[in-house]
Amino acid sequence: MTVVRVVVVDDEQMVCVFLRTILGSAEDIEVVGEAHDGAAGIETVARCRPDVVLMDLRMPGVDGLTAIERISEFADPPPIVVLTTFDADQYVMRALRAGAAGFLVKSTPPEDMIGLVRVAAEGHTVLSAAAARRLVAESTGSQPARDRARKLIKALTEREAEVLAGIGDGLSNAQIAARLYLSEATVKGYVSRMLDKLGCENRTQAGLIARDANP
């Protein structure tokens, strides 16, 4: 059995205790580290090398956004999932663009939290239901963002653009493969090349480009 190693970064100790208890109830998830501010979070991630990081945004000292940016610069950084009290947090979109793999409101039901951590460990975008609605509402960018996104997409092949559209629709590789009548391995290859051409760290950033291009 593969165990998903998780680091939790949140300045509220009760939140950390809650997450440690919830995630620890799953046999295949282990909380291997905990930090209460961004600076300590960066150090803990560097030391523990987790499979997933759960990161609060609003913390004293080095905030979560800065920590996400720095962790995203690591060689082979782990997926970072933002934890926020409100799905309307104004910093969430900035965090996604900085490299976060998704975000969850802290009120996400425990069973959903466990499942979404597993999904994040597999390299997929994770969004709680409320978060997904917010992302759709907020990801319609400005005209400069639309122009930039459309210019980037022009560098893609037709098939890569189709794969990007699938990511923008929130589809997994398997779902994109079914839509395009391709093997999942082939889709994975397209995703890798597409991310490189777009200069994206992960699928979430690519999905935002797709949404900016087609508001």
Rank of each mutant, 00 (worst) to 15 (best):
E69W: 01
L96F: 07
D87V: 10
A75V: 10
I114M: 05
L65D: 04
A145E: 13
A67Y: 04
G102F: 04
L156S: 13
D147Q: 12
L54H: 06
P77A: 11
A131Q: 01
G64R: 05
I68L: 01
E138K: 09
A137V: 05
L152A: 06
S128E: 00
P79F: 02
T66W: 10
V105M: 11
D87C: 12
V53T: 06
V119H: 11
A95S: 11
V62R: 15
G141W: 04
L156G: 14
T108N: 13
L104M: 12
E111S: 15
L116A: 10
F86I: 01
M59T: 00
V105T: 15
T85W: 00
D89K: 02
A155M: 07
F103S: 04
T157V: 05
I80Q: 05
A131R: 00
G123I: 14
Q143K: 12
D147V: 15
S128Q: 00
S142L: 09
G123H: 06
A98V: 12
D112P: 01
D89F: 03
M59G: 03
A101G: 09
P110R: 12
R148F: 04
A101D: 08
Y91N: 09
T125D: 01
D76F: 13
E111Y: 14
G102S: 03
T125F: 02
R146Y: 02
L104E: 11
A98Y: 08
E122M: 06
V53F: 10
Q143A: 05
A88E: 14
Q143F: 10
D112K: 13
M93I: 12
L54F: 06
A155D: 11
D76L: 13
A130F: 00
L104C: 09
S72L: 07
R97E: 14
S72A: 15
A132G: 04
V136A: 10
G99A: 12
T140C: 12
R58I: 02
E69F: 01
G123W: 08
P60H: 03
V81A: 08
A132W: 02
A67L: 01
A155K: 13
R146D: 00
D147G: 01
A67P: 06
D56K: 03
G64C: 08
D87M: 07
F103G: 04
V119Q: 15
Q143V: 13
Q143Y: 11
A98I: 13
P144V: 06
G61I: 00
E138Y: 04
V81F: 10
E158Q: 14
A88W: 01
P144S: 07
